[in-house]
């Protein structure tokens, strides 16, 4: 549904994004993850036809965002980081206007607007002026305007930005509800939001794609190359035995806060084996910790790896 090939955007000599490639299948929900300024919004703006890339191509539904932006706009719904609302209008009159702008026929107008309001739970504020709405409701109206014409693709740029915890849960449920009916692309700098709402994530850092995959595959990648800090009495006597384990890459003696121990570089999570080994040798196990844990670890790791690669 979306094919991005070697996409680049530069401002003078500065690359906002550089040689980004990925594809998204019809009906898939994909999250763009990255720190602020990583290039997520630039990618979404190009997909949403707001800007033209400096290099590479992007196609949505087979249409080029550069050559056929008009066709792309017909099949896409776009929510920018700030919902584009006319404050003097009511929710219903605004959605009516957007629906007509997005070529919904007069026969379907009322039906489509009602459906969009129902999906985003806007019934209670249907006749309220947009200027009077809370941030959470404004964000909902933003999503309603993106889907009012029943597009094939929904692009949501930081949809939970600025929401309070209760609003975040509501927004997350709404996005989950949209999954399957639309090809969904959303961006966030909050990892947990991506994992809770998307099937797959694309991690961007300093304008480059640094990792891509499902939560499970990225977890697997994180486990490979994990470090385990083992705090134990008499660590030297264990080095040779730990090195014999097939998953172990290297073992280095180290000092922790108030104990001595080992830092073990490994391809898999071998904490259980290490515990058995320490107890079997009759030593005291004082502590054990993985350096990277879960997806936060993957995120930090890819960001750190890309920093290293850059240097």
């Amino acid at each position: 549904m979306i094919v991005v090939d070697n996409l680049s955007k530069s401002y003078g000599s500065q690359w906002a994004i550089h040689n980004i490639s990925f594809s998204i299948k019809r009906g898939e929900a994909v999250g763009l993850l990255g720190l602020n300024g990583a290039g997520k919004s630039t990618i979404l703006k190009i997909i949403g036809t707001l800007m033209v890339p400096s290099g590479g191509t992007a196609h949505v539904g087979g249409f080029s965002v550069t050559e056929d932006p008009h066709q792309v706009r017909k099949i896409i719904g776009y929510l920018p980081d700030t919902p584009p609302l006319y404050n003097e209008m009511t929710t219903r009159s605004y959605l009516n206007f957007v629906a007509q702008l997005k070529e919904v026929s007069q026969n379907n107008l009322k039906k489509f607007v009602d459906e969009a309001m129902e999906r985003t739970n806007l019934g209670p504020v249907a006749d309220s002026h947009l200027s009077t709405l809370s941030h959470g409701y404004r964000q909902r109206v933003g999503i309603a305007q993106a889907l009012v014409h029943k597009p094939q693709v929904l692009v949501l740029d930081e949809p939970i930005n600025g929401l309070d915890p209760v609003q975040i849960v509501d927004m997350r449920d709404m996005i989950k509800d949209l999954k399957g009916d639309y090809t969904l692309v959303l961006s966030s700098h909050i990892l947990s939001e991506i994992t809770k709402t998307c099937d797959r994530m694309i991690i961007v850092d300093h304008g480059k794609l640094v990792a891509e995959g499902s939560e499970a595959s990225l977890k697997e990648k994180a486990t490979k190359g994990m470090k385990i800090n083992l705090e134990v009495s008499h660590p030297k006597s264990l080095i040779a035995k730990i090195e014999q384990l097939p998953e172990v890459i290297s073992v280095v003696e180290s000092k922790f806060e108030d104990t001595a121990g080992l830092v073990i570089d490994t391809n898999a999570d071998i904490r259980a084996q290490l515990a058995k080994l320490v107890v079997g040798e009759g030593l005291d196990l004082l502590g054990m910790q993985r350096t990277f844990e879960g997806l936060e670890g993957v995120f930090m790791k890819v960001i750190q790896n890309s920093e290293v690669a850059k240097r």
Binding site: G48, T49, L50, H70, R73, K74, I76, Y78, P80, T82, P83, P84, L85, Y86, N87, V98, L101, K102, E103, Q145
Partner: peptide
């Protein structure tokens, strides 16, 4: 200034 231009730029409007 208000950001509503994004709606117009991303709609099928010349």
């Amino acid at each position: 200034q208000s950001g509503t231009i994004t709606l117009l730029y991303t709609s099928p409007l010349t």
